[in-house]
Amino acid sequence: MKKILKSAAVIAIVLVLIAILFGMLHKPPVVCPLHERVPSNFPIIVNTNEGSATELRLYNTFSEYPLQIVEKSEYGVMWMVAGKGWSGAAFPDDNYLHFSIQKDSMCDYSNRAARKFFCDECVKAFKELDPSCNFIVVDAYENDNLKYHDIANIEELQIRHYSFVAGDTEEGLLSFEMHSSYYDSGKELDFLDKDITQFDNHYAGIQ
């Protein structure tokens, strides 16, 4: 019995040492692909296992103020959007964006895989969310208050003036549409309605 307890104690110590060593060896990436996109007016699709974070860019924004939407007169007819494992097309004149996720690119969320690409803050948030798969939708409008959403709940998701609905499903794809009520709701997020100093300070802090 004593030998068994002694062996168990040794194993426990070894496991603790391995955990400590792993923690010491782990170094977060120099650039987090998600925080590199912050702040953003648009919801962001994150593929946690592949290290990609891509905006669902429905409208154009100004380079100096990425939260400010450019007036429609400056838009084109449509443009393509894509990230790892998904692709779509934006139709700004009609205020919607269609995108499809490849089913074979979806898998279980892996905390170990996410740690290779994302900062500790993101990995912690991913783990707390406990997503159903490796795709997450993030509201990155506020620099210090990112909101993470499971792709499984996307049909019920409302991010500010953006709402999501299921689209036509094709073989091997999960399709969705993202609609915006920005113009219907009186440009609710137009930065010109706010104190410009607030935005200058906001962006100065991330440059």
Rank of each mutant, 00 (worst) to 15 (best):
D139M: 05
D104K: 06
F99M: 02
K2L: 03
S181R: 05
Y109H: 05
N201Q: 03
V14T: 14
R115K: 10
E142F: 14
L173M: 08
H149I: 01
V46K: 09
V138L: 05
H161D: 09
S7M: 10
L21C: 10
E171V: 00
H26Y: 14
V10P: 01
P28M: 03
P28W: 00
S181C: 03
V77F: 10
K27P: 04
S63N: 15
S181M: 01
L157H: 08
A89V: 13
V77G: 12
H179A: 05
R37N: 11
D130Y: 11
E142P: 10
V137Q: 09
A152V: 07
E64C: 11
N60P: 07
D93A: 15
K147C: 10
V16I: 07
I206D: 11
P33D: 08
E156V: 05
Y182I: 01
M106Q: 12
L21D: 12
I69L: 08
A166G: 06
S163H: 06
I206R: 13
A8M: 04
M78N: 15
D93N: 15
S180M: 00
I13P: 08
D195V: 04
N134S: 12
E156P: 04
L17A: 15
I159P: 05
E121H: 11
R37D: 07
P66S: 11
A90H: 10
R57H: 13
D200H: 13
D104Q: 10
F42R: 08
M24F: 05
L146T: 13
L189G: 13
V16M: 08
D168L: 00
L56D: 12
Q68S: 15
T61F: 04
D94V: 02
I18E: 02
S73T: 15
E170L: 02
N145P: 11
I159G: 12
M106F: 03
A9E: 04
E55W: 08
A125K: 05
E188R: 06
A8R: 04
V16C: 10
H149Q: 05
Y96W: 01
L174K: 15
D195M: 02
C119Y: 00
Y75S: 10
T197E: 09
T169D: 15
K2T: 09
P29V: 00
M178P: 04
D130H: 15
G167V: 00
C122K: 03
V14L: 06
S40P: 04
S132I: 00
L146N: 12
E171R: 02
C119Q: 03
V30T: 13
